[in-house]
Protein backbone atom coordinates (compact mmCIF):
# COMPACT_ATOMS: atom_id res chain seq x y z
CA UNK A 1 0.00 0.00 0.00
CA UNK A 2 1.53 3.32 -0.97
CA UNK A 3 2.71 5.35 1.98
CA UNK A 4 0.73 8.46 2.75
CA UNK A 5 -2.23 7.50 0.59
CA UNK A 6 -5.61 7.93 2.16
CA UNK A 7 -8.11 5.09 2.08
CA UNK A 8 -10.54 7.28 0.11
CA UNK A 9 -7.89 7.98 -2.53
CA UNK A 10 -7.18 4.28 -2.82
CA UNK A 11 -10.86 3.45 -3.26
CA UNK A 12 -11.33 6.18 -5.87
CA UNK A 13 -8.18 5.43 -7.84
CA UNK A 14 -8.79 1.69 -7.75
CA UNK A 15 -5.56 0.94 -5.89
CA UNK A 16 -4.77 -2.68 -6.90
CA UNK A 17 -3.29 -3.43 -3.47
CA UNK A 18 -6.49 -2.39 -1.75
CA UNK A 19 -8.70 -4.26 -4.16
CA UNK A 20 -6.73 -7.49 -3.78
CA UNK A 21 -7.01 -7.16 0.01
CA UNK A 22 -10.75 -6.56 -0.23
CA UNK A 23 -11.07 -9.48 -2.63
CA UNK A 24 -9.15 -11.80 -0.33
CA UNK A 25 -11.23 -10.69 2.67
CA UNK A 26 -14.46 -11.49 0.85
CA UNK A 27 -13.08 -14.73 -0.57
CA UNK A 28 -11.78 -16.03 2.76
CA UNK A 29 -14.72 -15.00 4.92
CA UNK A 30 -17.42 -16.05 2.45
CA UNK A 31 -15.69 -19.39 1.82
CA UNK A 32 -15.37 -19.95 5.55
CA UNK A 33 -19.08 -19.26 6.05
CA UNK A 34 -19.99 -21.55 3.14
CA UNK A 35 -17.84 -24.34 4.53
CA UNK A 36 -19.26 -23.85 8.02
CA UNK A 37 -22.80 -23.86 6.59
CA UNK A 38 -22.28 -27.10 4.65
CA UNK A 39 -21.26 -28.80 7.88
CA UNK A 40 -23.22 -26.68 10.35
CA UNK A 41 -26.72 -26.68 8.87
CA UNK A 42 -27.14 -30.47 8.86
CA UNK A 43 -25.49 -30.58 12.28
CA UNK A 44 -27.87 -27.93 13.62
CA UNK A 45 -30.80 -29.82 12.10
CA UNK A 46 -29.57 -33.02 13.70
CA UNK A 47 -29.39 -31.34 17.10
CA UNK A 48 -32.87 -29.89 16.60
CA UNK A 49 -34.52 -33.16 15.59
CA UNK A 50 -32.72 -35.92 17.45
CA UNK A 51 -32.85 -36.50 21.17
CA UNK A 52 -29.87 -38.37 22.60
CA UNK A 53 -28.11 -38.53 25.95
CA UNK A 54 -25.83 -35.55 26.48
CA UNK A 55 -27.68 -33.42 23.97
CA UNK A 56 -28.47 -30.70 26.53
CA UNK A 57 -24.87 -30.19 27.65
CA UNK A 58 -23.74 -30.30 24.01
CA UNK A 59 -26.18 -27.53 23.10
CA UNK A 60 -24.90 -25.44 26.01
CA UNK A 61 -21.29 -25.95 24.92
CA UNK A 62 -22.05 -25.04 21.32
CA UNK A 63 -23.95 -21.94 22.41
CA UNK A 64 -20.98 -20.94 24.56
CA UNK A 65 -18.59 -21.56 21.66
CA UNK A 66 -20.36 -18.81 19.71
CA UNK A 67 -18.08 -16.55 21.73
CA UNK A 68 -14.85 -18.48 21.15
CA UNK A 69 -11.87 -16.12 21.29
CA UNK A 70 -10.48 -15.91 17.74
CA UNK A 71 -6.91 -15.92 19.04
CA UNK A 72 -7.47 -19.26 20.74
CA UNK A 73 -8.99 -20.76 17.60
CA UNK A 74 -6.12 -19.30 15.59
CA UNK A 75 -3.54 -20.75 17.92
CA UNK A 76 -5.20 -24.17 17.93
CA UNK A 77 -5.37 -24.24 14.13
CA UNK A 78 -1.79 -22.96 13.97
CA UNK A 79 -0.57 -25.83 16.14
CA UNK A 80 -2.64 -28.25 14.06
CA UNK A 81 -1.36 -27.04 10.70
CA UNK A 82 2.22 -26.25 11.71
CA UNK A 83 4.82 -28.48 10.07
CA UNK A 84 5.48 -29.87 13.53
CA UNK A 85 1.74 -30.46 14.10
CA UNK A 86 -0.51 -33.39 13.19
CA UNK A 87 -1.69 -31.84 9.92
CA UNK A 88 1.67 -30.28 9.07
CA UNK A 89 2.10 -32.58 6.06
CA UNK A 90 -0.63 -30.61 4.28
CA UNK A 91 1.70 -27.63 4.13
CA UNK A 92 -1.13 -25.10 4.17
CA UNK A 93 -0.08 -22.91 7.10
CA UNK A 94 0.29 -19.25 6.02
CA UNK A 95 -2.08 -19.73 3.06
CA UNK A 96 -5.64 -18.54 2.43
CA UNK A 97 -6.78 -22.19 2.79
CA UNK A 98 -5.58 -22.22 6.36
CA UNK A 99 -7.41 -18.94 7.01
CA UNK A 100 -10.63 -20.34 5.55
CA UNK A 101 -10.30 -23.45 7.66
CA UNK A 102 -9.66 -21.45 10.85
CA UNK A 103 -12.48 -19.01 10.23
CA UNK A 104 -14.83 -21.87 9.37
CA UNK A 105 -14.08 -23.38 12.79
CA UNK A 106 -14.65 -20.02 14.42
CA UNK A 107 -17.98 -19.54 12.66
CA UNK A 108 -19.22 -23.13 12.94
CA UNK A 109 -20.66 -22.85 16.49
CA UNK A 110 -22.63 -19.75 15.45
CA UNK A 111 -24.09 -21.53 12.44
CA UNK A 112 -24.90 -24.70 14.38
CA UNK A 113 -26.42 -22.90 17.36
CA UNK A 114 -28.57 -20.48 15.35
CA UNK A 115 -29.57 -23.14 12.82
CA UNK A 116 -30.56 -25.48 15.63
CA UNK A 117 -32.78 -22.80 17.15
CA UNK A 118 -34.38 -21.89 13.83
CA UNK A 119 -35.01 -25.49 12.84
CA UNK A 120 -36.28 -26.47 16.27
CA UNK A 121 -38.88 -23.70 16.09
CA UNK A 122 -39.85 -24.69 12.57
CA UNK A 123 -39.99 -28.35 13.53
CA UNK A 124 -42.49 -27.59 16.31
CA UNK A 125 -44.72 -26.15 13.60
CA UNK A 126 -44.10 -28.84 10.96
CA UNK A 127 -43.86 -31.98 13.08
CA UNK A 128 -47.43 -33.27 12.71
CA UNK A 129 -47.76 -32.37 9.07
CA UNK A 130 -44.49 -34.00 8.03
CA UNK A 131 -45.15 -37.06 10.16
CA UNK A 132 -48.60 -37.39 8.61
CA UNK A 133 -46.95 -37.23 5.19
CA UNK A 134 -44.60 -40.00 6.22
CA UNK A 135 -41.42 -37.97 5.64
CA UNK A 136 -38.28 -39.77 6.84
CA UNK A 137 -35.38 -38.22 8.81
CA UNK A 138 -33.31 -37.12 5.80
CA UNK A 139 -36.37 -35.65 4.12
CA UNK A 140 -37.25 -33.78 7.31
CA UNK A 141 -33.79 -32.21 7.49
CA UNK A 142 -33.95 -31.19 3.84
CA UNK A 143 -37.48 -29.78 4.17
CA UNK A 144 -36.72 -27.82 7.33
CA UNK A 145 -33.49 -26.40 5.90
CA UNK A 146 -35.26 -25.37 2.72
CA UNK A 147 -38.35 -23.93 4.39
CA UNK A 148 -36.16 -22.21 6.98
CA UNK A 149 -33.95 -20.75 4.28
CA UNK A 150 -34.91 -17.13 4.84
CA UNK A 151 -34.22 -17.32 8.57
CA UNK A 152 -31.05 -19.27 7.92
CA UNK A 153 -29.78 -16.41 5.76
CA UNK A 154 -29.61 -14.41 8.98
CA UNK A 155 -27.55 -17.21 10.48
CA UNK A 156 -25.12 -16.94 7.58
CA UNK A 157 -24.92 -13.18 8.02
CA UNK A 158 -24.11 -13.55 11.71
CA UNK A 159 -21.33 -15.94 10.74
CA UNK A 160 -20.06 -13.65 8.01
CA UNK A 161 -20.07 -10.67 10.35
CA UNK A 162 -17.95 -12.56 12.82
CA UNK A 163 -15.53 -13.83 10.17
CA UNK A 164 -15.13 -10.50 8.38
CA UNK A 165 -14.52 -8.61 11.61
CA UNK A 166 -12.01 -10.86 13.31
CA UNK A 167 -8.25 -10.47 13.15
CA UNK A 168 -7.04 -13.03 15.68
CA UNK A 169 -7.21 -16.26 13.69
CA UNK A 170 -6.21 -14.95 10.29
CA UNK A 171 -3.23 -13.09 11.70
CA UNK A 172 -1.87 -16.24 13.32
CA UNK A 173 -2.61 -18.84 10.66
CA UNK A 174 -2.31 -16.52 7.65
CA UNK A 175 0.77 -14.62 8.72
CA UNK A 176 -0.43 -11.34 7.14
CA UNK A 177 1.80 -11.92 4.10
CA UNK A 178 1.68 -8.96 1.74
CA UNK A 179 -0.26 -9.76 -1.43
CA UNK A 180 -1.00 -13.31 -0.32
CA UNK A 181 -2.70 -13.58 3.06
CA UNK A 182 -3.23 -9.92 3.96
CA UNK A 183 -6.90 -9.19 4.65
CA UNK A 184 -8.76 -6.05 5.61
CA UNK A 185 -8.49 -6.67 9.33
CA UNK A 186 -4.81 -7.65 9.33
CA UNK A 187 -4.02 -4.67 7.08
CA UNK A 188 -5.79 -2.43 9.59
CA UNK A 189 -3.73 -3.96 12.41
CA UNK A 190 -0.55 -3.42 10.39
CA UNK A 191 -1.31 0.21 9.54
CA UNK A 192 -2.14 0.81 13.20
CA UNK A 193 1.23 -0.60 14.23
CA UNK A 194 2.87 1.64 11.64
CA UNK A 195 1.17 4.56 13.32
CA UNK A 196 -0.79 5.47 10.19
CA UNK A 197 -4.01 5.85 12.10
CA UNK A 198 -5.94 7.77 9.39
CA UNK A 199 -5.26 5.01 6.85
CA UNK A 200 -6.19 2.38 9.42
CA UNK A 201 -9.47 4.14 10.13
CA UNK A 202 -10.07 4.60 6.42
CA UNK A 203 -9.58 0.89 5.81
CA UNK A 204 -11.90 0.23 8.74
CA UNK A 205 -14.59 2.31 7.07
CA UNK A 206 -14.07 0.41 3.82
CA UNK A 207 -14.50 -2.86 5.73
CA UNK A 208 -17.67 -1.65 7.43
CA UNK A 209 -19.04 -0.54 4.07
CA UNK A 210 -18.30 -3.97 2.65
CA UNK A 211 -20.09 -5.73 5.48
CA UNK A 212 -23.07 -3.42 5.08
CA UNK A 213 -23.04 -4.16 1.35
CA UNK A 214 -23.09 -7.92 1.88
CA UNK A 215 -25.90 -7.56 4.40
CA UNK A 216 -27.88 -5.34 2.05
CA UNK A 217 -27.58 -7.88 -0.76
CA UNK A 218 -28.66 -10.67 1.57
CA UNK A 219 -31.59 -8.60 2.77
CA UNK A 220 -32.65 -7.92 -0.79
CA UNK A 221 -32.42 -11.58 -1.73
CA UNK A 222 -34.46 -12.48 1.32
CA UNK A 223 -37.15 -9.90 0.53
CA UNK A 224 -37.51 -11.02 -3.05
CA UNK A 225 -37.51 -14.65 -2.02
CA UNK A 226 -40.16 -14.11 0.62
CA UNK A 227 -42.38 -12.24 -1.80
CA UNK A 228 -42.12 -15.06 -4.30
CA UNK A 229 -42.26 -18.06 -1.97
CA UNK A 230 -43.82 -16.76 1.23
Amino acid sequence: MPAGASALEMVLTGDPGLYSIVGLSLYVSLSAVALAAIVGFPLGAFLALVRFPGRGPLVVVINAFMGLPPVVVGLAVFLLLSRSGPLGFLGILFTPRAMIFAQALLVLPIIVALARQTIEDLWAEYRDELTAMGIGPAGRVATLLWDGRFSLVTTLLAGFGRAAAEVGTVMIVGGNIDGFTRMMTTAIALETSKGDLPLAIGLGLVLITLVIGVNAIAWGVRRVGELRAG
Binding site: M133, G139, G230
Partner: peptide, 27 residues
Protein backbone atom coordinates in the same frame (compact mmCIF):
# COMPACT_ATOMS: atom_id res chain seq x y z
CA UNK B 1 -52.31 -45.22 2.80
CA UNK B 2 -53.64 -42.65 5.22
CA UNK B 3 -53.59 -38.90 4.75
CA UNK B 4 -54.65 -36.14 7.05
CA UNK B 5 -55.90 -32.58 6.97
CA UNK B 6 -55.42 -30.62 10.18
CA UNK B 7 -57.69 -27.94 11.58
CA UNK B 8 -54.91 -25.45 10.87
CA UNK B 9 -52.85 -27.04 8.13
CA UNK B 10 -49.20 -26.04 7.90
CA UNK B 11 -48.44 -24.62 4.50
CA UNK B 12 -44.88 -25.28 3.43
CA UNK B 13 -43.02 -22.07 2.60
CA UNK B 14 -43.35 -22.53 -1.13
CA UNK B 15 -45.92 -21.98 -3.85
CA UNK B 16 -49.26 -23.78 -3.89
CA UNK B 17 -48.08 -25.99 -6.72
CA UNK B 18 -44.84 -26.79 -4.90
CA UNK B 19 -46.82 -27.91 -1.85
CA UNK B 20 -48.59 -30.48 -4.01
CA UNK B 21 -45.34 -31.39 -5.68
CA UNK B 22 -43.82 -32.09 -2.27
CA UNK B 23 -46.62 -34.48 -1.33
CA UNK B 24 -46.40 -36.25 -4.68
CA UNK B 25 -42.65 -36.65 -4.30
CA UNK B 26 -43.13 -38.04 -0.79
CA UNK B 27 -45.17 -40.91 -2.19
Amino acid sequence: RCAMVFQRPVMLRRTAAANIDYALAST
